[in-house]
């Protein structure tokens, strides 16, 4: 059993009067792929965004409970350096969101901010673009605006941009739902290739995808007006013999 990259206990997220997520306990195993599944509005995204404090950006959002990184850093502690935290816990969003500037600038901005030496940046860009299979496609047009790339390329660029900062954990927030099936497959393969190198937490509505890539699965469900975790464990076990009645119906495609 691998150690936990993230140790979550008693995590609740609320937006003003609305509780989005209640009392979640979950250990995210290091170097593996953990898929968060469940119907819309059951708190998966709130959970994901709490992991690197993107919830801070939402006015009126309150997070309580504990999220510990492998080295013991407490994510929810207001004293924690949130910028350094987000370097260690990166994220790829649902819609590709490259900065509408040159492809090169998309890497230079975050790398400079996190103290990479200027001379190391070109190598770093090449390494991560190779990792996501974009190097051959775009190495001769790094000066071009990133928004001229196709949707799938943009999403791979965003993944490369996140990887460039050498994170320990990468969060994926439905990374394929805005892509066509072909591009979606490419991104899925890339996520699989990250196994053992980084810890992956992925929110997906796509059950078949979760089944294909996940080592661990966590099923979220709405109970008493708030999202909560109803089932978790090794993906194989969760998909083949779920215990929770709602999870059983959901995974069989009957509900949600």
């Amino acid at each position: 059993m691998n150690a936990a990259a993230l140790h979550i206990s008693g995590l609740s997220v609320s937006y003003r009067d609305l509780t989005a997520l209640r009392e979640v306990d979950l250990a995210i195993p290091e170097g593996q792929i953990t898929a968060l599944i469940g119907p819309s509005g059951c708190g998966k995204s709130s959970f994901l965004h709490a992991l690197n404090r993107l919830t801070d950006l939402v006015p009126g959002c309150r997070v309580s409970g504990s999220i510990r990184l492998a080295d013991g850093t407490e994510v929810t502690d207001p004293q924690t350096d949130v910028l350094a935290l987000r370097r260690r816990v990166g994220i790829v969003f649902q819609r590709p969101n490259p900065f509408p500037q040159s492809i090169r600038r998309n890497f230079e901005i975050p790398l400079k901010e996190h103290g990479w030496a200027k001379s190391d940046i070109p190598d770093r860009i090449e390494t991560v673009l190779r990792e996501v299979g974009l190097w051959k496609e775009i190495s001769d047009r790094l000066h071009q605006n990133a928004s001229t790339l196709s949707g799938g390329q943009q999403q791979r660029l965003c993944l490369a941009r996140a990887l460039a900062l050498e994170p320990e954990v990468i969060l994926f927030d439905e990374p394929c739902s805005a892509l066509d099936p072909l591009a979606s497959g490419v991104v899925e393969d890339l996520i699989l290739s990250l196994r053992e190198k980084v810890t992956v937490v992925i929110v997906t509505h796509h059950l078949a995808q979760a089944r294909r890539i996940a080592d661990h699965a966590a099923v979220f469900w709405t109970r008493d007006g708030a999202g909560t975790l109803v089932e978790q464990g090794p993906a194989e076990r969760v998909f083949s013999s779920p215990q929770d009645p709602d999870a059983i119906l959901y995974l069989n495609g009957a509900r949600g």
Partner: peptide, 17 residues
């Protein structure tokens, strides 16, 4: 677009940057 600001936050960019 807020998606750009989210991207910036997700990459750990400070407010000034």
């Amino acid at each position: 677009p807020s998606s750009l600001l989210q991207a910036a936050a997700g990459l750990g960019l400070g407010r000034a940057r």
